[in-house]
């Protein structure tokens, strides 16, 4: 390992942030201008959305199950077991659904994008694309960005639903609670702001997954070893940033809706 001076490190960091911002700006700009690669958008939607469905359903469902179990233990002490539904629903919709779906899709797709684009970069396919008259950002990054943001939104809704179903399943089958009460308290506890918060978060996460995955992919150097490094870095960076942005968005939403 080579040690670099703090100054040099800061310089590369600033340069990377600048490069990343330019990539984001260009990818967004390309959404609003022609030519658009619709076929690539559909392919990516299939791979990101449909492909991630099983893991999102499973993680959502079992997270709901665990949440119900844990909540029941704590709530029993206060004699408030009947509020399990409220706790599961609120946690899933506001926090766990969006964050866990984001992290799952990040692990699956940010890595996939980084390794696919990274392999294309090191085998000169990106250069070949430019030589053949195609802008790689328009052709590769923008479709992934559009597809991830769009699909993550719906995946999050599915995850929320599965989580609540999981919580209900555990409450009814293991805790012997009333299903009607579970859903009723859950439903009554949600207000407009909670739903908005839960649905805004995946928009940010989707943006982060696609742009970070593509950014690390496109800046890959150093052969197949470089591809491995980019993949790892993309997952780590996107996961951390998803949680960080989740914190910021939560803070913002509390400011707006007061809860």
């Amino acid at each position: 390992m080579r040690f670099v001076s703090p100054e040099a490190y800061a310089k590369t960091l600033v340069a990377s942030v600048q490069e990343y911002s330019l990539l984001c700006a260009q990818a967004i700009g390309d959404v609003f201008s022609r030519p658009r690669y619709m076929a690539d958008i559909y392919t990516q939607m299939d791979s990101i959305g449909v492909g991630s469905l099983p893991i999102v359903v499973l993680t959502g469902f079992f997270t709901g199950c665990v949440l119900a179990l844990q909540a029941a233990v704590s709530l029993k002490e206060f004699g408030a077991v009947n509020m399990t539904g409220e706790l599961v629903t609120l946690s899933m919709v506001k926090e766990l659904g969006p964050v866990l779906t984001g992290l799952m899709v990040s692990g699956r797709n940010a890595s996939g994008m980084a390794s696919e684009l990274g392999s294309m970069k090191v085998s000169e396919q990106i250069d070949a694309m430019r030589a053949l008259g195609t802008d790689p950002v328009r052709k590769l990054v923008t479709p992934r960005l559009v597809a991830t943001v769009f699909m993550l939104f719906f995946l999050t809704i599915i995850s929320d639903a599965c989580g609540i179903a999981g919580g209900a399943f555990v409450s009814v089958a293991m805790l012997k609670l009333n299903a009607g009460t579970f859903f009723h308290t859950g439903y009554m506890s949600l207000v407009h702001g909670d739903v908005v918060e839960g649905l805004v978060k995946p928009l940010f996460s989707g943006f982060i997954i696609a742009t970070i995955g593509c950014y690390y992919g496109l800046r890959t150097t150093g052969g197949t070893r470089g591809v491995g490094q980019s993949t790892t870095q993309a997952v780590v960076a996107s996961s951390v940033i998803i949680i960080l942005v989740d914190f910021l968005v939560t803070q913002l939403m509390i400011g707006i809706f007061g809860r």
């Binding site: 396919q125 250069d127 694309m129």
Partner: peptide, 9 residues
């Protein structure tokens, strides 16, 4: 024509 052909896989 690229060094390693650079065909789209």
């Amino acid at each position: 024509v690229f060094q390693e052909s650079a065909l789209f896989d």
